[in-house]
Design a protein around this nucleic acid. Sequence first.
DNA 1: AACAACTTTGACAATACTGTCAATAATGGA
DNA 2: TCCATTATTGACAGTATTGTCAAAGTTGTT
Lengths: 195, 195
Amino acid sequence: MVGTRKFNEEEVLNIAIDVFSRKGFNATTMLDLAKETGVQRGSLYNAYQNKDLLFLKAFSHYTDKFLIFIEGELQNPNAKEAFSQLLKTVVERLCGDKEARGCFSTRAIMEAAQKCPDIHLSLTRFLDGLETVIKNRLQKAIEDKQFIGDPQATASYLVALTRGIAVIERVYHDKERMTEIYQTALEYMPFTKVS
Amino acid sequence: MVGTRKFNEEEVLNIAIDVFSRKGFNATTMLDLAKETGVQRGSLYNAYQNKDLLFLKAFSHYTDKFLIFIEGELQNPNAKEAFSQLLKTVVERLCGDKEARGCFSTRAIMEAAQKCPDIHLSLTRFLDGLETVIKNRLQKAIEDKQFIGDPQATASYLVALTRGIAVIERVYHDKERMTEIYQTALEYMPFTKVS
DNA sequence: AACAACTTTGACAATACTGTCAATAATGGA
DNA sequence: TCCATTATTGACAGTATTGTCAAAGTTGTT
């Protein structure tokens, strides 16, 4: 490379994710992103062409990390504990110290899924990925005789439920409520009792 | 009244609900609403002051009808069938003939909850109302010995789940997937077997 | 019929946002 | 060191959106 980029792309994308999470896709302007990242608007256009593409870059950056994170959280050999752990950290992430930060992907789905086919595809792929990670863990739980439901159906159900929790967060900002919701769901799921 | 309003408010609000559902709160402009309702932008400003207030009017119009609708759907004396019926019609409404119509309240929550305290309050009240209707039906189910879970926790869980289904709709537009999700949830819920 | 009260209408100003571009600056490689 | 290449910067034009307002229109009431 000859004229090399001055700004740190990793950093810019992380900030973009944060801004999109807080303000939502539509309400976030290129000027917002420029201000918060400290990178001139013109530079952002030069690097990413437009908001849609910048969003796509940020989103794939986010999902790559997120899916790995999810898989890590599900490592506990006890299936019920694994999912409990996962949901607990997800809730904690949603109700982090930063007041107004919501769920990046859920906001994006509600606002940007219709925007263009590329964004729609990214969002679909992400949910598919999430579902697969969950399904695989449920499959393993069945092999371990720790679960007796249908992995595919249950995975797609859990994906929906976590999206729902993200919506609830927007309204109540109440960690306890969100915790109660996922605990209720876990209680109802057909995990088998393990000594 | 002397200078009486020319447009039919009921009709305008219904169209507004439809436009907000399709485009989302932010992407809907006063011009959009003017075009689709056939009412001049100036008249809308005169009647509702601004977009936030117009939205509030439309939203309360929507929720009034929706909560009554929900209560009706839950009339079936068999609790599991009642909830099955409810979720079935909710899914059908989401996947109606109109291609791009999503869930009005869920879109609003993700986009407009932060906008102003009044909107936030309306959204909270709506979810509270929904939860109460569901909780009451579950309470009755317990009295009828058709259900053995906690009504409050289960109601708030079901509110979250339905929001989640609305999010899923945005991505997959797949009625079968949504049906499978709520059926899975119903299977897992502790309804007691009734002869 | 005349009036008061309200609505409708179209025009207007102000602002916000997007996307582009030319000039300038920076930098790795020859 | 010089050059080719890319990034940065600030300005610009174009469009979109909001909100306001005065003029005109409408209608129930007296």
